[in-house]
Amino acid sequence: MIKVHLKIKRFNPEKDKKPWWGEYDVEVEPTDRVLDAIHEVKWNIDGTLALRRSCAHGVCGSDAMRINGRNRLACHRLIRDEIQNGQITIEPLLGLRVIKDLIVDMEPFFAHYRSIMPYLVNDTDPGPRERLQSPEDRARFDDTTKCILCAACTTSCPSFWARGEYVGPAAIVQAHRFIFDSRDQGAAERLEVLGDSNGVWRCRTVFNCTEACPRGIEVTKAIGEVKQAIATGKVR
């Protein structure tokens, strides 16, 4: 067991005028996850600490937060990989309103997600069985099927910090998943949404999103491919 000093940014809008740092010493294994250390605080030191988490195994994407200044999933990062001089700093995601402590208002994020029609658009008769697709056509968008909507990419993006109306990397990744699906027929509508002033052109190719994605999705590349599809009018 090792001692870890956790510095957690706290904010309760019902009580606090501005955010403050809560500091806690916990004993955890180096191979424990950052989430375990936060649980230690919540369960044994200060039950008022608020955070989201569900599966706690990197699948549901609900515990995205800033760990040592970078967007990460708390259930995805080990103590030994994050501890710096005996300390780990934890803050809520940037660019979204803090509801309490580590919980941010995800509604604007999901509104952007809904705006790109994240479902298969095809009104033709699928026939007696499912719509068939070649392995090559399936592979074309395989990478962007991995998104878990944790918002780590969108809230690491300077363009999103500056302008909340920007659809953001996650919505573009989700759009990419359908635009390049050979079974889908809604690409033109999605590209229209993404081609407007709050669409893909706000991306400045900073690569924060690619670096933040806990699923290793090539986010900036996907955004680049959508930009090309809009610029050339060709979906390849």
């Binding site: 970078r70 300077p158 900073v206």
Partner: peptide, 17 residues
Amino acid sequence: TVRASLSYRGREGHWLW
């Protein structure tokens, strides 16, 4: 935005931006 840009610990792409 300026505060976020300075506090986020991005990699080289962030600082070059």
